[in-house]
Design a binder for these strands. Structure first.
Lengths: 254, 254
DNA sequence: CGGACTATTGATTTGCGTCAAAGATTGTGG
DNA sequence: CCACAATCTTTGACGCAAATCAATAGTCCG
C-alpha cells in the first residue's frame, strides 16, 4: 500500500466522519481497504454508461465528470467529482446504469472492489449507513442540478456551479479567494446546459459585474456573498448533517 | 395494522425484491414495520425543504412530487413518486435538505419512523443494502432528469417524461396503452423546465404527430416504439439489476 | 515552429417565455 | 340540480435569451 493510497483513504474517511459516527475499529477497517492505483490521462473516458464494473473509483487527484449522452452524442455532465470522493460509490450496490466517467484533468484513481465495500457494509452496519449517507449527499447535489437547469437563466446557472465547487473544494469564503477548477468553457456548458459560445459571453458578463472571474481553469471572486447571491446559492444542502452527533448509533456492532 | 398498510408494505417489499435478495426473516421484518396512515388532500405540501422529519412516507395511493424552489418562489419538480414507493427513503439517513413534497392528487401515505428503518438496516445488512440500492434507483432517475433538462428540446423532454412514467407504472407496452397520470400542464412544465403555455403547445404537436395523447390527466399512446424514439428513451436505467440473483449475498446474517 | 485545442467576438435565427383573453371543466354551496 | 367561482386549457401576438454559423485570435504541447 503506497503513501498516496493511505493518504487518500484517510481523506475519504474524513469525509465520512463529517456526517457519520464511526468507532476506531470501523475507521481502521476502512483504512485497511485494498486499493489498486490507476492513472488516467486528461480527456480519457474511463467508465461507460450501461457498462458493468466490479470496483469503485476513489479519486486521489484530478477532476472527474460523470456524464450522460444524448442520441446525437452530445454530453450532459451530471456531476463533478474531486479528490477524496468516490466517483461511483453507488456502483457498489448498483453496478450498471448511472452514466459514464471522464477525466477532465490528469487523474489518479484508486480502485476498490465492490465486494470488499459490500462486505464492510454488511459486517459493520455503521459503515453501511455512512456509505449510504454519502451517496445521499451526491443525490442532494444532483437534485440541486435539476433545479439549476430547469428554472434559471444562464448567468445564475454558471454562478451556481462556481458556488457549489467553492464549498465542495472547501475554499475559504471569508474574503477574496481563488481555486483551480480545470474545465474548459465547453465543458462548463455541458454541465449547465448551454453552448460553449454562450458560456463565454456570460463569463464575460460575470467578470464585468465583478461577480466571478473564470480564466483558464481558475475561479476567483472578491466576495462570497455577491457570488452566492448571483447564483441563488444556499449551501445548506452540502453542509447538512455536518454534526454527526445527530446520527446516534442505534445498534451496537455484533 | 389495517389492510391498506399490509397491502402497501407488501408492494414496497415486492419492489425491493425486484432488485435485491431478502430471506424470509428479512421479508417479514419489513412487513412488520409499524406505520401510521395519513391522508393528504390534493395540492397540499406535506414536507418542506430544510425541514427535519423523523419518519419516511410510503405512498399507499395517489401521486406525489418532490420539488425545489427558485428564489422567486417558482417550483422545479425533481421527481414523481407513485404508490409502493417511499417518497423520501433518503431521509432515513439524511433527515434534512432534499426538497419538499407535494400531493398532486389526493394521497394516502404511511409514515414509518426513521429509527425503525435504521434499526432494520443495522440488524439485517441485506435490508440495509436493499434500501441503499432502492435509493440509488431514485438517483439514477434523477441523473436522467438532468440529461433530459440539460440537452433536449421541449418535445423530446415531454415525451421522455411520459416514457419514464409508463415504465414505472408498469404499463403494458406491447400495444396501445393508457394510464392515469394526474398532473396539470402547469405541473408538467415545472417538471421539464417549461412554462405551462408552452407545454400546451407541445402537447398539441405530440398529438398531431400521433406520438402521445395527454388529456386531463390521462396519457395514452398507440405504439411504444414511436413514443420511446420521440423521447430518446432507453429503459435500461430503470430495469437494471432486475435479476437479483446477481446481487449475491456476501455475509450471512448474524 | 506548427498543429490542435481553446477562447473571443459578430451577425443572424429560433425556440420558448411573456402577456393577454377566451373557453372548457370541475367543484361548491344554496 | 343549478349557478357561479375557481382552476385548467387553449390560442394569438410579441419579445428576448440562447443557439447557430462563422471567422479571428490566443495558448499549449510536442
Amino acid at each position: 500500500m503506497t503513501g498516496l493510497a493511505q493518504l487518500t483513504l484517510q481523506r475519504f474517511l474524513d469525509r465520512l466522519l463529517l456526517r457519520s459516527v464511526l468507532n476506531l475499529e470501523e475507521q481502521s477497517a476502512i483504512l485497511a481497504l485494498t486499493t489498486q492505483e490507476v492513472s488516467i490521462r486528461s480527456r480519457q473516458d474511463f467508465a461507460r454508461e450501461n457498462q458493468e464494473s466490479s470496483y469503485c473509483c476513489l479519486i486521489a487527484s484530478g477532476l472527474v465528470a460523470r456524464f450522460g449522452q444524448q442520441n446525437d452524442g452530445s454530453r450532459q455532465i451530471t456531476a463533478f467529482h474531486i479528490p477524496g470522493e468516490m466517483a461511483d460509490l453507488h456502483s457498489a450496490v448498483r453496478p450498471i446504469g448511472i452514466g459514464g466517467l471522464q477525466a477532465l484533468s490528469d487523474v489518479v484513481t484508486l480502485r476498490i472492489c465492490h465486494d470488499s465495500i459490500r462486505q464492510l457494509a454488511a459486517r459493520y452496519p455503521a459503515i453501511g449507513e455512512a456509505l449510504w449517507r454519502d451517496c445521499m449527499l451526491d443525490a442532494a447535489i444532483l437534485m440541486k442540478w435539476v433545479v439549476n437547469l430547469g428554472g434559471r437563466d444562464a448567468m445564475t446557472r454558471l454562478a451556481n456551479v462556481f458556488c457549489e465547487m467553492t464549498v465542495r473544494y472547501n475554499v475559504d469564503r471569508s474574503g477574496a479567494a481563488k481555486f483551480d477548477f480545470p474545465v474548459t468553457q465547453e465543458q462548463l456548458g455541458e454541465a449547465v446546459g448551454l453552448t460553449g459560445v454562450h458560456v463565454n459571453r456570460v463569463l464575460r458578463t460575470l467578470r464585468e459585474k465583478s461577480i466571478v472571474w473564470f480564466v483558464r481553469g481558475i475561479v476567483s471572486f472578491r466576495d462570497w456573498g455577491t457570488l452566492a447571491r448571483a447564483g441563488e446559492f444556499d449551501p445548506a444542502y452540502l453542509l447538512a448533517d455536518t454534526k454527526p452527533e445527530r446520527q446516534r448509533r442505534l445498534l451496537m456492532p455484533i
